[in-house]
């Protein structure tokens, strides 16, 4: 073959383009892409779930592409016929949106080895829940001498100017509002009592964080002493030596199932199924339950142990009793109106 200058240039350009846009070479077969959440979820999945998946598939190629639920939906929506993600992870609100927008496939339940072992709340045909997130009360044990026992304790006069909450952009913020509504005679359909309660909480508020992650910083800085908080986020803070404790209020912990879905039109359907199977398996869930991850399992074959048994619930029966699941289909109907209202009423 004769190497002309033109020839050489073409080859160089092609190689350069392939280097600059690796997507070009993935057109036929790209690795499985799992959009997990950022932060500690990514760490946990990289350390435990990915190795389990590799073992189950004989070292199949996969990448983690951590991003927020809303970004996952936006990305898949932008390229429905050739989605850049194969497996999505969602909080309950976005999960229903993804299903409503026809972005996910039903989970092949009859093929699954583990689906039937999940607790009933986790058995979702459009995408099962591999774990729960739990929201309770977080407080600083150095300044709060009597541990809080109820959501109503946030309104106690000694916490004037010491309470932190988040706005409704997050699942945590919205779930907290629904819980408040329920405490004061409202429901997912009637949020009014929650807004009244927040109005009464105003003098106590030291901060309305723009996202739940910010609450962590506020505890660290001594800006707040008490707030609703995510169990897993609090464990990370605790591990870093920040004085925080987590309690489940007597009304019960607000629990969210985090569901995992196969994206519609995914070119890696089979691998996606295997990844989800790995996430549901008792081995992976048992490892993720241990320190430092402390992720709440949904597989009934996993016996609850350690810190989880101490702070949350000693078995799955107690989980069913202590965890309050909310009706996110109802919540989604009005959530945008609530966010608007929160914007207006809480603004200084």
């Amino acid at each position: 073959m004769l190497l002309t200058r033109r020839n050489l240039m073409q080859t160089a350009l092609t190689l350069g383009a392939m280097h600059a846009f690796p997507g070009l070479t993935w057109a036929q077969a790209r690795p499985l892409v799992f959009a997990t959440f950022t932060g500690s979820w990514e760490e946990a999945h990289r350390a435990v779930l990915v190795p389990a998946f590799r073992k189950a598939t004989g070292n199949a190629d996969m990448v983690l592409d951590p991003m927020l639920s809303v970004d996952q939906i936006a990305k898949v929506n932008a390229a429905r016929s050739n989605p850049p993600i194969d497996v999505m992870l969602h909080d309950p609100g976005p999960a229903l949106q993804a299903v409503a927008q026809d972005l996910v496939e039903p989970y092949p339940v009859e093929k699954s080895a583990y689906y039937k072992d999940l607790i009933p709340a986790a058995q979702v045909p459009m995408g099962p829940a591999p774990f729960f997130q739990v929201v309770g009360i977080t407080y600083n044990p150095e300044t709060v001498k009597t541990p809080p026992t109820s959501w109503a304790d946030l309104w106690r006069p000694e916490f004037k100017g010491r309470v932190g909450i988040t706005n409704l952009n997050s699942t945590l913020g919205t779930g907290f509002m629904v819980e408040l509504a329920k405490m004061h005679g409202g429901s997912e359909a009637n949020i009014d009592p929650a807004f009244k309660a927040i109005e009464a909480l105003r003098p106590s508020l030291a901060a309305v964080a723009a996202n739940p992650g910010q609450l962590a910083t506020l505890f660290q800085q001594g800006q707040i002493d008490i707030s609703p908080g995510n169990f897993n986020a609090i464990q990370i803070l605790k591990a870093r030596g920040v004085p925080v404790e987590f309690v489940i209020p007597k009304e019960g912990a607000i629990a969210f199932k985090t569901t995992i879905h196969i994206v519609k039109n995914s070119p890696n359907r089979e691998l996606a199924f295997k990844l989800i199977e790995a996430a549901l398996s008792p081995e992976v869930q048992a490892t993720l339950m241990e320190e430092p991850y402390l992720i709440v399992p949904t597989n009934t074959k996993v016996a609850i142990k350690g810190e989880l048994a101490k702070t949350l619930a000693k078995d799955h029966a107690e989980i069913a009793k202590k965890f309050v699941f909310q009706d996110w289909a109802k919540i989604n109907e009005q959530r945008s109106a609530w966010i608007e209202r929160f914007n207006r009423e809480i603004r200084v």
Partner: peptide, 25 residues
């Protein structure tokens, strides 16, 4: 704006983000 201002102050960039990302509007 959002880290120092917090959730009780709303400026245009956050407003746009909220509508586009959280509310998908």
């Amino acid at each position: 704006q959002s880290l120092i201002g917090g959730g009780q102050m709303l400026f245009m960039p956050m407003y746009i983000y909220q509508q586009a990302s959280t509310l998908q509007n």
